[in-house]
């Protein structure tokens, strides 16, 4: 069996719990992401999603376990892994354009100034930012615009893996919708591998090829890998009409509502925990798809 593009193996993270003991956030977590895939990880707040993402980004070291990308173990941050943070993390003293050229320059140090600027402008335009706006400082932009800049900055660098930590968490629903559409549009034109965190089910279904479901902590684990069997290109209104939409959505709601809690706190006794693949496809076997995955997961 060939290793996936990104493989996470036996990842364990513990923290001191503040009372002399240790808090195990997750233990022996493992999963893979294929090249070009859009994978979303869904789980309740505090289950360790950001911790996983920081480890993937190389910004944090796991207590044990390895992350391998393209066969090499991840150690430290790299331009190959771009990050879009929840709070945008734009540099407030630079203009919008400079925030992007700053990144492009780091990625392509041999380029001329004009090349760097053109490239940055192109990506800003892709997220709908052009004209005077790009000379404004981030503090003069709305939250949605700032997140657009942050997305442009990440995409402009053509990372092998793009990591997004609840990128739309702080935005109002309307803005979130528009930027999700933009993200889909940009992503559609690239072979970009994306790993994204969210706690919004509809966002996950709209964007993902595959959703990883995480149980609550402590001892959280990636319990299921749910394929999103809705063909692309997708639109917010289009997906609702697809026969698989409600089946998938119900499955996710049910997981987050009850099973994420039931499955919480189970130790793995050192056995590597890989997520169970769940495929719900009403277009082929209408009856079985509805029930089967739920039963399988409970018996697990």
């Amino acid at each position: 069996m060939t290793k996936p593009f990104l493989s996470v193996e036996n990842l364990t993270q513990t923290y001191p719990d503040g009372q002399g003991g240790t808090l195990t956030v997750f233990e022996n977590a493992g999963f893979g992401v294929e090249k070009g895939e859009f994978v979303v990880i869904l789980g309740h707040s505090g289950c360790g999603k950001s911790t996983i993402m920081n480890i993937l980004a190389g910004l944090a070291e796991p207590t044990s376990g390895v992350v391998k990308m393209d066969g090499y173990a991840v150690s430290g941050p790299s331009l190959d892994r771009g990050v879009v943070f929840q709070n945008y993390s734009l540099l407030p003293w630079l203009s919008t354009l400079k925030n992007v050229t700053f990144a492009v320059q780091a990625r392509f140090p041999d380029w001329t100034r004009a090349q760097v600027t053109d490239h940055a402008r192109k990506y800003l335009e892709m997220v709908g930012l052009s004209g005077d706006v790009i000379h404004r400082k981030p503090s003069q932009l709305s939250g949605g615009m700032r997140q657009r800049v942050s997305i442009a900055r990440a995409f402009a660098n053509h990372p092998k893996l793009l990591l997004l930590d609840e990128p739309f968490g702080a935005l109002d629903a309307l803005t979130r919708g528009t930027i999700q559409d933009e993200l889909l549009k940009i992503w559609g034109g690239t072979e970009q591998t994306v790993f994204m965190i969210t706690h919004d089910i509809d966002e996950a279904i709209l964007l993902a090829d595959r959703i990883l479901l995480m149980t609550n902590g402590p001892y959280a684990r990636v319990a299921e890998s749910v394929e999103i069997t809705i063909p692309r290109p997708r639109t917010r209104t289009g997906i609702i009409e697809h026969p698989n939409y409600y089946a998938i959505r119900n499955h996710l709601v049910q997981f987050l509502g009850t099973r994420s809690r039931e499955l919480a706190g189970r130790q793995t006794d050192g056995a590597p925990a890989t997520p169970e693949t769940v495929r719900i496809d009403k277009t082929t076997d209408a009856e079985a798809a509805d029930e089967a995955p739920v039963l399988r997961a409970v018996n697990h």
Partner: peptide, 9 residues
């Protein structure tokens, strides 16, 4: 901001 610097190597 330090993390931005780090992820851009």
């Amino acid at each position: 901001w330090v993390n931005v610097a780090r992820t851009h190597e």
